[in-house]
């Protein structure tokens, strides 16, 4: 999928409140308060490995940091419960926005799940206020969530397991992440493709509290 792709085909809109509720229930926000990931980032012709730590604050926000293999801090950020984020420290040759909208947003995917207020108008057949649940011909399901100018697509397999998330802005794909689960509340592996920033990232969960 390219970075300037139009909206993906979501399939048929489905007015199935029990199904929608079941999918929402299946991906409730995890109670994990501290998670460590091993991350490998690929750009064309170069790669960087690091360790990333996410800690949830008692107020419902987050603090996160990236650390190099030799122990130095690459970045440290804070995300308020309302989603406002800021960089506390950074030794990366990128802007704060690049970091917050890219690496950090992708790092927090396991906590950025759809909620009951999910709604949107992703295609002409949908109307605001209708349940934004879609079904593909292969049996997969998609929940659509509008967040400002962004569109979040939460994609589930036919059994209702959350397997992918896509974030689009203005019709452009910001990132696409596939999730591999092993029974824990945080995915075992998260694979991200960020075409706008020209990188792919693989996060492997190292520890979970």
């Amino acid at each position: 999928m390219g970075g300037c792709a139009s909206l993906p085909s979501l399939g048929e809109p489905v007015n199935d409140a029990p199904r929608r509720a079941a999918l929402l229930h299946a991906c409730q926000r995890p109670q994990a308060t501290e998670v460590v990931f091993r991350t490998l980032i690929h750009w064309p012709g170069r790669e960087v490995s690091l360790t990333e730590v996410v800690k949830m604050t008692p107020e419902g926000g987050f603090r996160a940091a990236g650390i190099t293999d030799i122990g130095s801090t690459l970045y440290a950020v804070q995300v308020a419960p309302n989603g406002a984020s800021r960089v506390l420290s950074k030794s990366l040759p990128f802007s704060d926005r690049w970091l917050l909208d890219g690496l950090v947003a992708e790092l927090l995917i396991p906590w950025q799940r759809p909620h009951e207020a999910s709604q949107g108008t992703p295609n002409a057949s949908a109307r605001v206020g209708e349940p934004q649940l879609y079904r593909q011909s292969d049996g997969t399901w998609t929940l659509v969530h509008h967040a400002g100018n962004d569109l979040h697509l939460f994609i589930f397999d036919a059994d209702g397991n959350w397997k992918e998330v896509r974030r689009l802005s203005g019709g452009h794909l910001r990132y696409r992440a596939s999730l591999e689960w092993d029974g824990e509340p945080i995915p075992k592996i998260i694979r991200v493709n960020n075409p706008g920033n020209h990188y792919r990232a693989v996060r492997e969960r190292v520890s979970l509290q």
Binding site: L40, R46, V48, S49, I70, E204
Partner: peptide, 25 residues
């Protein structure tokens, strides 16, 4: 990370295997 007197090499162990990194640093 290794240095044999001539060449620096950086590796990470990911998804069950060592991977040689083309590390910009």
């Amino acid at each position: 990370m290794t240095y044999d007197g001539k060449k620096v090499q950086c590796y990470t162990f990911t998804e069950g295997a060592w991977k040689l990194l083309n590390n910009p640093a």
